[in-house]
Design a protein around this nucleic acid. Structure first.
Length: 171
DNA sequence: CGAAGAGTAGTCG
DNA sequence: CGACTACTCTTCG
């Protein structure tokens, strides 16, 4: 497995690490000041393979012009339900948002369960869990809610930034 | 508008 | 089972 680290234009000292094996992304994590987020583990290395360059290029394009990703993610981990939710997330186009409730209806589930699955998303940014919002506001991100923030990274600010970047409008 | 309560489904121990 | 959630709807001030 190889990992690259991409600086994010969202905030100072904020990075996205992208891990991959062969031509498949196996996970992405936010890093603050080079330190792994609570849930991640392995130290990062750099690579210059063709796929690594493609990843960097797609990230650059996304953060510059809001382009779509063609990268493929390894969605095999996780439960059946989680994979269904993540697959549904991939079908939300940039600039649009769905509520947890609306997504739940499509999957014959409940809003709370959808929120759970989004929280378990292993591919923030690439799998656009930020395009799912609450019926009454922005909802949570990476475990953070309006009420409580967990780590040093302000995840809600990231969600807000991504949605603004995609020109999505929420309540 | 806000707060409180009930209802909900998926996951973990 | 019971106790968690990135939820939502109704009801009551």
């Amino acid at each position: 497995m190889t990992t690259i680290v991409f600086p994010l234009p969202i905030a100072e000292q904020l990075y996205l690490s992208v891990s991959f094996v062969n031509n498949t992304i196996t996970g992405t994590h936010y890093l603050s000041n080079g330190q792994p987020t609570p849930s991640s583990g392995s130290p990062s290395t750099t690579a210059d393979s063709v796929f690594a360059k493609q990843i960097k290029h797609e990230l650059e394009s996304y953060f510059k012009t809001d382009s779509q990703f063609t990268l493929t993610c390894d969605l095999q981990s996780g439960t059946e339900f989680q994979r269904k939710v993540w697959q549904a997330l991939l079908e939300i186009p940039s600039g649009e948002v769905k509520t947890y409730g609306a997504l739940a209806k499509e999957l014959n589930s409940s809003a709370r369960a959808v929120g759970n699955a989004c929280r378990q998303n292993l591919f923030p940014v690439i799998v656009p869990c930020h395009r799912v919002v609450s019926a009454s506001g922005i909802g949570g991100y990476a475990g953070d809610t309006l009420d409580k923030q967990h780590g040093r990274i302000n995840f809600l600010q990231i969600k807000q930034w991504l949605l603004a970047h995609e020109k999505a409008h929420i309540k």
